[in-house]
């Protein structure tokens, strides 16, 4: 049984002046146990709204979903007890010491006091925060704060962890650090991770499955490799003085002195392509192959670039 299963999940918001905005328009989703899934899309695509519905923060307008075996509408407490959630903002309250918040979090999930304390110390150690135990969140660096958010989400050892933009707003070093912690913890606990992101490289490198959402609908779903092969494909770029003829012979597109052609597997197609041109005595001065990025996938699907939108929400 999938750990997340959604059917026709829909959410609309009523703004002032009776205007309605359809943030999520009928999402069907099945996530298998143990996967690391990236939910990718531009700002305002409906990523966070979907996440908020799955984590019981927001009731759906229409549709249904079961998360960790419990229905989000009829048994929200059953869902809450089994999931962890790290939101976009800070999980720790400003007035509280780091360790106090972790103990309180364990208590929120029904752990007896000694066990809550033990778990607090364990997650502090796991995320390299032991030295910060008595500090207040406001005195931590951005990366440390994010690790604290993760620690809070992990106190009760959830089997399913939701991460909403886990590395947004961090510098590259802190991002890498936060990611190494996420991956290591996942290795140790073996949990399912469902995360939203608008960082393409992150989804590409980390996720076993990428689901692309745009305008409240899922527009693509698969491994990063599958999506890139099926929806964007490789490119071969050749530089030649006789670009027009070369384009004709290879079926590519000429642009000045370069020819660009789309192929399923560029490294395998390149030698053949060069031999053909050689046989027609066309001199190729440079040749390169290019793997597509997830942005090419998004571009192919929507005609827009995701990278244009790469501003933290």
């Amino acid at each position: 049984m999938p750990i997340i299963s959604a059917r026709g999940l829909t959410r609309s918001f009523t703004l002032k002046r009776k205007e309605t905005v359809d943030a999520v328009r009928g999402i069907d989703l099945d996530i298998e146990d143990g996967q690391l899934v990236a939910f990718l899309g531009p700002n305002g695509a409906g990523k966070s709204t979907t996440l908020r519905m799955l984590t019981t923060l927001l009731p759906p307008t229409k549709g249904s979903a079961t998360v960790a075996g419990h229905d989000i509408a009829t048994d929200p407490s059953g869902v809450r007890a089994r999931i962890g959630y790290v939101g976009q903002k800070n999980s720790a309250g400003e007035n509280y010491r780091v360790r106090d918040e972790l103990v309180a979090q364990g208590r929120c999930y029904g752990l007896p006091i000694p066990q809550a304390r033990r778990r607090a110390d364990e997650v502090l150690d796991m995320l390299d925060l032991t030295k910060m135990a008595k500090r207040r969140p406001g005195t931590l660096s951005g990366g440390q704060r994010r690790r604290l958010d993760l620690a809070i989400g992990l106190v009760h050892e959830p089997k399913l962890l939701f991460l909403d933009e886990p590395s947004t707003g961090l510098d590259p070093t802190s991002r890498a650090e936060v990611w190494s912690h996420i991956l290591r913890v996942r290795e140790e606990i073996g949990m399912t991770i469902f995360m939203t992101t608008h960082y393409l490289e992150e989804a590409d490198a980390m996720a076993e499955r990428v689901i692309i959402i745009d305008n409240g609908r899922i527009i693509a779903d698969g491994t990063a490799e599958q999506l890139k092969n099926d929806l964007a494909g490789d490119h071969i770029i050749l530089t030649t003085p006789d670009a027009a003829r070369a384009a004709e012979l290879t079926g590519g597109e000429a642009d000045g002195a370069t020819v660009k052609l789309r192929v399923p597997n560029a490294p395998a197609a390149l030698p053949e392509c060069l031999r053909t041109l050689d046989a027609h005595e066309i001199k190729v001065t440079a040749a390169e192959t290019k793997r597509p990025t997830l942005d090419d996938v998004f571009l192919a699907l929507t005609g827009r670039s995701l990278a244009d939108d790469d501003v933290p929400a």
């Binding site: 923060l57 407490s77 959630y85 939101g87 976009q88 999980s91 720790a92």
Partner: peptide, 20 residues
């Protein structure tokens, strides 16, 4: 007022996801 600061800061959201 305390709740408001927690709502703005994000810690309220985390408490709302818990089974409290």
């Amino acid at each position: 007022y305390n709740l408001l600061t927690e709502a703005i800061g994000g810690s309220l959201e985390r408490l709302m996801v818990s089974p409290l």
